[in-house]
Write a protein that binds this DNA or RNA. Structure first.
Lengths: 233, 233
DNA sequence: TAAGCGTCGATTGTCGACAGTTTTGGCTTG
DNA sequence: CAAGCCAAAACTGTCGACAATCGACGCTTA
């Protein structure tokens, strides 16, 4: 026991942690596409813009480097990570691997509560698709998959997913309005959830493979079109 | 193309990167068991001992935090990560998931060269076991598994493994001489390699499950005995 | 005219310092 | 003698500054 006297677990101090704030800020800028892949991220500039010193910025940059959002080039600074088509393929390869596991585990441990939450999330996606808000729809998509990993009940597995998706979002953030059909995106998740609810292992695996296989192809095409210099909104 | 004119590939400048040096130093101290789980890692103390300022130490600590070796407690400093039995179970759950994938992929892409390297590694383990050097044997064990991930040809998958094993090594580093039978450890890997060489998917999966299942149990027992305050060398 | 070299500005890597907070040790008190 | 409180020390979080290094621009030269 390291805790001397634990009262009720109430306080949960709001982390004023400047480093994490900076990390979130930068992360958001990257994911939202305001910082394009390949862009140099100057410590001094960020520090000036945020009105703080360079030390917290540096640490935040290290954090994002380890998360795969930034690439550190010694003595030259940090750059927004660029993803080649091959790397996207790697990411999806790994993602299929872990998401199969997550979906199976989630199916085993599925509670009434999480089942309802998952259904609600799909309804949200559908609503956002109807409202023609692709960005929010993609965010909801991400959350849906993340909920599956949460339901799997393995925090390390969830961490891998977070790492993966933060890398992927460097690219996916660029999709925005480009996404052709949000409705299709929303509907594509229904059979996956149904398979998880049904609890048949082979069906679940097939659905995950299919769902992510499609995503892998589409994101792959996107990246390819990006690297050939297609126009962006 | 970013390189203007590539001469022969000679230079390979030694990275003076102080941060990584510190990270390696701390990492080694933790893995080798000189820094026990739960121990506070004082920035000032480390900086003094290494004869440098606190800034690089701070950044290295952040790095190790993100790697799972340290735990950051705001305003209180960094502590060597402690692993509960449940967390070790989580780690092995994830590891089985990714190692199944890695073993399958490695089997598909197996070249003559990597096959020879894997066999050599097993021979090395055997030799170390005969020489009664459990620490080196464990290191060789780790390297063998890492080589499988390398052979799989997915750098992200490898990164997950590195993350996993760095967390596990916090515990495993404490085993040292406690390990009961190094020879058993060395021999246990033979069928796994043979399965990979044979290239039969179901056999590979079964071997991975068996091999890691055993390891999971043994490490789990170790952690349990640690938490009950068993003596250590 | 084009290629190579040297210099200048800008940026990173590292340092020491200061303010605020946590911990520790001793002291008081029941 | 144990528990609680108070003050001092130690430590973290952040800052501004300096030296070393990198990239760019202009100059020299074949």
């Amino acid at each position: 026991m390291r805790v001397k006297s634990q009262l009720v677990g109430l306080p949960e101090v709001v982390e004023s942690d400047l480093v994490r704030q900076v990390a979130r800020s930068l992360s958001a800028a990257i994911v939202e596409g305001r910082l394009r892949p390949g862009t140099k991220v100057s410590e001094a500039a960020v520090a000036r813009e945020l009105g703080i010193s360079r030390a917290p910025v540096r640490e935040a940059a290290r954090l994002l480097e380890n998360q795969g959002l930034l690439r550190a080039s010694p003595r030259r600074g940090f750059f927004v990570r660029e993803l080649s088509a091959a790397e996207v393929d790697e990411l999806y390869d790994l993602r299929i691997c872990v998401e199969r596991h997550a979906a199976l585990a989630a199916s085993c441990r599925l509670t009434q509560k999480t089942r309802a939450a998952l259904r609600e999330q799909l309804a949200l996606m559908d609503a956002l698709a109807r409202a023609d808000d692709p960005a929010a729809c993609i965010e909801a998509d991400y959350q849906f998959h993340r909920m599956i990993f949460e339901a799997a009940g393995n925090s390390r597995l969830l961490r891998v997913f977070d790492g993966l998706s933060s890398e992927l979002r460097v690219v996916i953030g660029l999709i925005g309005r480009l996404y052709d059909d949000p409705m299709k995106l929303a509907r594509a998740h229904v059979p996956l959830l149904e398979a998880i609810e049904a609890g048949r292992a082979d069906t679940i695996l097939a659905e995950v493979d299919h769902h992510l296989g499609v995503a892998r192809r589409e994101v792959g095409l996107l990246v390819q079109s990006l690297s050939t210099g297609a126009a962006l909104p």
